[in-house]
Design a protein around this nucleic acid. Sequence first.
RNA 1: GCGCCCAUCGUCUAGCGGUCCAGGACGUCGCCCUUUCACGGCGAAAACACGGGUUCGAUUCCCGUUGGGCGCGCCA
Length: 449
Amino acid sequence: MSPVPIVRFAPSPTGRIHIGNARTALLNWLYVRRRGGRFVLRFDDTDVGRSKAEYAASIEQDLAWLGVEPDDVRRQSERMAIYDAAAEKLKSAGRLYPAYETPEELDRRRKVQQALGRPPVYDRAALRLTDAERAALEAQGRKPHWRFRLDPGTVRWDDLARGESHVDCGSLSDPVLRREDGTFLYTLPSVVDDIEFGVTDVIRGEDHVTNTAVQIQLFEALGGVVPRFGHHNLLTDASGEGLSKRTGALSIASLREKGVEPLAVAALAVLVGSAEAVRPVASLDELAALVEIRHLSHGAARFDEAELDALSARTLHAMPYAAVASRLAALGIAGADAEAIWLALRGNVAKLSDVADWLPVIAGEIAPVVEDRAYLAQAAAALPEGDWDQTTWSAWTKTLKAATGRKGRELFHPLRLALTGRESGPELAALLPLIGRARALARLSAPSS
RNA sequence: GCGCCCAUCGUCUAGCGGUCCAGGACGUCGCCCUUUCACGGCGAAAACACGGGUUCGAUUCCCGUUGGGCGCGCCA
């Protein structure tokens, strides 16, 4: 097998991606990030009716927001001729055969089989058609769709996540590879592309395990190298319901709009349902070192959005200035004081945008809360001269303590109320130098409120 | 209905026959630190789904039941 892993994330651009898709994308991305390798973003857009360019664009945006930067982006809609050739190859090998049933007929048969307690498997009636019968159908204007003739045996593989795995293909329908109009379903293009792009590891959700058995047969029928497969456990929402059944709420776009940190989304998306404790991380590299596909559990895991908010806040509390500098600049926080402002405020924000709430305290207008004018006048008079730094607060309050005999809450709280106008907030030692002498003096001397 | 996978504290999990009156993380609660919040420190409550086996001994192995996830598409 290639020493350099090549993985792919293959969404169909028929909607926006949600947290479950992000889990798959990230698991792939982190896999090659740690080993050195390539990540291909492949849009499985053979369903022209449902695929939309704007969805593809938004998927790329969502991935970029999470920090996933593909090495290559491909579109299946541009590669039809190649799938055509593969289909011909299967046809001449006797593995692809025409079938003429209508979707309604098939649906009816499936229902009958289910009612009889039989698995709803295609009966291969088309395989028993004589040449004359086929010609008759064609003469009526019926166009065939094309099915891949499955080997009935059991397909086995050593799964990256689940170990020894097997699927009995005898209980599967021959998959339709191509529609009447010549367009392809996802199965064949996926395998053709995996072969051609040299994909070494297919990491996807466990909803694909039976597809994997079919696709392994397809890899073999096409003479391609069968990649390693890994099927990660699926996520459910907080109530235990499968994500695929719900839409919207857990989309990456909605999480971004809520102001959740991308690193928190990434961390929870891949750490939940694994043996590793969910924790804030400082980078995707740190996350990559934590994630081990083999350590994923095999049952579905709950993704709790409430947990995400807490993780997002904790991620912010430890975030170095360099990691947020450009986003702070966009909020108007830049220049010499920007780092000090961030370090003073970060422990008190749940979302990055919360820093805006504190800006007036540092550099704008507030309504000081004044309850004890005499004490504040005394405090104003004791305000140190010269340049202020982190030590100014304690020097000042020490002086005040000696002069007034106050201590604890009685000493500090009136100062906080006057200087910030609020009951609680960041440490005043960090805030005071940012507020500056002039502003502090004005607030301490404000009229009673 | 049939098939595959799973089943340990509220949640995510460790556990691969005795080391488990079950360990960690998040959450919750309490205490400490602190002018407040947050952080940090210490501590507490909190779980082996049920029934049968196998075994000297089952959380751990087997079978069944129940529950859950997924699949059974001319979706991907």
